[in-house]
Design a protein around this nucleic acid. Structure first.
Length: 275
DNA sequence: CACGAGACCTGTTCGC
DNA sequence: TGCGAACAGGTCTCGT
């Protein structure tokens, strides 16, 4: 589910409170329930239990697709991977079968990590930069300029689609927003990074930012049962729209597989690169 | 450095 | 109706 816009939306909801649930900052962890211990990536499960106990959560933010929760000592990072979701519930609310990991909070609240595929991870780290530091730039930050993108593109000779999915290249883009950004930029997913002229780079820069911003404006995308609230899925131009008409030219959208991931594009607006 | 395959998991949907 | 195959928002590791 979660790419930058979904993580951003959820982080804001947790930070400020949502639908009667209190803001997370200021709450203290009074207990932990770990039904899927492999959710805890670091440190060991016993050390995690011990160290998180009694700590106050001071803030909620996002870096790439990670949630960042500064604590009294150290920082909790959570990555939702494919099917993860976070919600605040009352302690006694019915627990669904995917809520494998729960941080019990003071005031009889829970922070519940629901994750049907169990790919998600929690990290309790003294130095969160060990993970966050390897991420590429934040695509919506002021310092992510077309010149920065151009310079990074020139540093690789790779097809654009897998490059956009590489979190060390730019942080936060996933399969939905990569396809949506490339369509906006009129660039084929197999175009090579080094082959882009300056106008192409600008178009890609705009495409990335526009797709992500629009995603955030619609509170992210909710597909299937995962994630509630967002409705960006109603505004996809190409993602999961194979066979439907391109919103620009009406040509049927094509689906292919690139780097083991599905890719959706308009064969008319996003012409195939010369081999 | 680039790239593909396989792993990690489970749920839903599709085709026969 | 049943059943296996295909597919799903992500990333990591290994081998070429």
């Amino acid at each position: 589910m979660p790419e930058l816009p979904e993580v951003e939306t959820l982080a804001q909801m947790l930070k400020h409170g949502h639908e009667g649930h209190p803001p997370l900052p200021g709450r203290r962890v009074v207990g932990v329930s770990l039904r899927w211990p492999r959710h805890v990536a670091e440190p060991s499960v016993p050390a995690f239990r011990r160290r998180i106990q009694g700590q106050t959560i001071h803030d909620v933010s996002r870096r790439g697709k990670y949630f960042v929760f500064p604590l009294d000592e150290g920082t909790l990072l959570i990555h939702l991977k494919m099917s993860g979701d976070l919600r605040i519930t009352q302690r006694h609310a019915r627990r669904d079968r995917f809520e494998h990991t729960i941080l019990h909070l003071d005031g009889d609240w829970d922070l519940r990590f629901s994750d049907s595929r169990k790919f998600g991870k929690l990290y309790l780290l003294n130095d969160p930069d060990r993970l966050l530091g390897v991420l590429g730039p934040e695509p919506l930050a002021r310092d992510f300029t077309p010149a920065v993108l151009a310079q990074r593109l020139a540093g690789h000779d790779r097809p654009l689609k897998p490059l956009l999915l590489d979190q060390t290249f730019v942080a936060g883009i996933g399969n939905i927003y990569a396809d949506e950004a490339l369509h906006r930029a009129h660039l084929h997913p197999l175009r090579r990074s080094r082959s882009l002229a300056t106008p192409d780079v600008r178009a890609l820069w705009r495409g990335i930012r526009a797709a992500l911003r629009q995603g955030i404006r619609h509170n992210g995308a909710s597909i299937d049962w995962v994630y509630r609230g967002g409705e960006f899925q109603n505004h996809f131009r190409v993602y999961q729209r194979a066979g439907e008409g391109c919103p620009v030219c009406g040509t049927p959208i094509v689906r292919t597989v690139i780097g083991q991931r599905s890719s959706h594009f308009c064969p008319e607006c996003q012409p195939e690169p010369e081999p």
